[in-house]
Design a protein around this nucleic acid. Structure first.
Lengths: 168, 168
DNA sequence: CGCGTAATGTGATACTATTACATTCCACGT
DNA sequence: ACGTGGAATGTAATAGTATCACATTACGCG
């Protein structure tokens, strides 16, 4: 294994210790509100997928999510997971982490944000950092070439504070 | 098809018309120098893969590259392509574009650079923009959370100048 | 020339994602 | 209440991406 053992909700607690149960509940409540406002249905599969993602501050592969769903009586085929994950992603409730071919619950659903993702190579935690400045710099660099940015993938990999302390 | 037909080396010429043959030759010459300096062997497969990537300013999937290799008498199995692509990537001669699960020749091999990739959704050209400022902003955002950045994936998708002009 | 390591080739397999189509569910108007 | 239409779910099949394990060949070097 890695440096330390991730208890549920741990993986470096996305870099800051916090009441994880509360953090997850809060996210679920917001999800309801957001879907409501968008006239979208927060169905059992969708909710369950978000709950599963919220259990830990790390990214999960679609098939990992699917296993959980299957074990709980939902469908067993990939589209079941992918559809729910797509829904969550489209509504800003989860993010796709391209570097990992995986998905993570959004840490700040509802709040407009241009997140950059910080992926710890050691404990595999994934955190969202405010990316406004990064995005501005990106728009600048692109604009200089006459390129108009519609969206971006901004992901950093490295070591989170907890893992740096452990083996500096 | 798309807005315009990509002639070899075209895809928006990575956003600026230029003598593509010269651009590719230059890159190959630099590759030799770089491998030499690193004590790495620029073998026939590796060279050929780089040549293929250099033909166009866009990203190619590993299997697309593999087809070319196979047709020319190299091996027919995926590792043949992946190994060469990994080699080129490790030596800074090519880049992996995660959003496309594909690879593109490096536009500025040798020059230390923190590239951000600009991916045109319309003509599929891929250009490298100078990412020093983006990277600085990223380091700042990460540092504020105590995260040390080892590397980053910085990719923007949108529309390149040529495609914007065509259908504004 | 012979040794050891790196590079290549091959087959099998794992992992990620999508297409196509059947069925069920639910909001809505009547 | 009832039927209807679109959304959501379920399933099967398949496409696309990537890696592992192992045999063989090529090459630098003593």
């Amino acid at each position: 294994m890695h440096g330390h053992d991730p208890t549920p909700g741990d993986p470096a607690a996305a870099f800051a210790p916090h009441d994880h149960a509360a953090c997850a509940e809060e996210a679920l409540r917001r999800a309801e509100t957001i879907c409501d406002a968008a006239g979208a249905r927060f169905t059992p599969v969708r909710r369950r997928v978000l709950e599963v993602l919220l259990e830990q501050h790390r990214a999960m592969g679609a098939y990992e999510v699917l296993e959980r769903l299957a074990a709980e009586g939902f469908g067993h085929q990939p589209p079941v997971a992918y559809r729910a994950l797509d829904f969550l992603t489209e509504h800003g409730l989860a993010h796709r982490i391209r570097r990992l071919n995986a998905f993570a619950a959004c840490a700040h659903p509802g709040e407009a944000h241009a997140p950059v993702f910080l992926i710890c190579e050691s404990c595999h935690a994934v955190a969202e950092a405010p990316g406004t400045k990064v995005r501005a710099a990106l728009d600048g660099a692109a604009g200089a070439l006459g390129f108009s940015v519609a969206g971006a993938t901004l992901e950093a990999y490295g070591r989170c504070p907890a893992c740096r302390e452990e083996r500096p």
